[in-house]
Design a protein around this nucleic acid. Structure first.
Lengths: 141, 141
DNA sequence: GAAACTTACATGCACACGCATTGGATGTCA
DNA sequence: TGACATCCAATGCGTGTGCATGTAAGTTTC
């Protein structure tokens, strides 16, 4: 709407790309190396971890998880399959709607999540508090 | 370093994810639908388009392009292969360093790039000038 | 209550990506 | 000159993703 919009927009996009790639790349690497978790997998645990946390029941419907993530329905389905194979999560049928699945954290899943949370937070702090400190990761492009 | 950092950082990351995914998803969709170009492919054209633009020679070394993109060396190599098959770009050996390749825009490539540029800019403006206007795309998660 | 539609999840498939490796060209040092 | 390290680009391979589709379950309409 104002003069210089083109340049501003390009600069803003470049900055967004830089922060996004550097951060998600390091998140991926750190979570994988330290906790054997992919970023998508961690994000599912993150949603489960805060869902109904006070009731002690860490569960959510697939559809609700999907709505909170930038991941297609099929990709989420496979991500959950991986988590299930790793024993971090269990699928449970929903009594009221047998099309739907509930997803629950297992004790192992909760433990893994709690262990990974500091790693996740540390990377975010590193890259988002002082953007200048966010440099290119060694791997990932 | 200050109180509330954790919450601030999480909110900032959420916002970055939102903007990045919405924007890149719509970029991908629009460029594909209107110009038969993937986002990575367009970005290569973008770099070539502004490289030495004044000299009328739109060329650059693979390594230099790689350094400007968030793409691995192998992915760039294949992206260029696709562009080459589409006739938008040609590889040319470098006289001074025969390990390196120069990449050049063909006339068709320049034309395609010029056609796609407004689409690219429009999406950026839409999503980055007023962040609230950036809503979830229909496709892509 | 049967038929048509919609919703939730899984799966076949194609594809773009990153990592590791390879092959060829260049530079360096003895 | 010969041996070795370095650099550029291509390719084999595995994996995660999205789209399209399939299947089962719920909802609506008559």
């Amino acid at each position: 709407m104002e003069a210089g919009t083109d340049v501003d927009v390009c600069a803003k996009w470049s900055e967004t790309l830089r922060v996004y790639h550097n951060t998600s790349c390091e998140l991926e690497n750190e979570l994988q190396a330290r906790h054997d978790l992919g970023l998508s997998e961690f994000e599912v645990l993150l949603i489960l971890g805060r869902a109904c946390g006070d009731k002690g029941e860490n569960k959510a419907r697939m559809k609700d998880i999907e709505a909170e993530m930038y991941l297609s329905q099929s990709a989420l389905s496979r991500t959950v399959t991986r988590l299930e194979k790793a024993g971090l999560v269990t699928r449970a049928a929903c009594d009221f709607d047998r099309r739907a699945n509930f997803l629950m954290l297992t004790p192992a899943g909760l433990e893994r999540f709690e262990a990974a949370k500091p790693t996740h937070r540390a990377v975010l702090v590193k890259h988002l508090t002082d953007p200048a400190a966010s440099s290119r990761a060694e791997t990932c492009a």
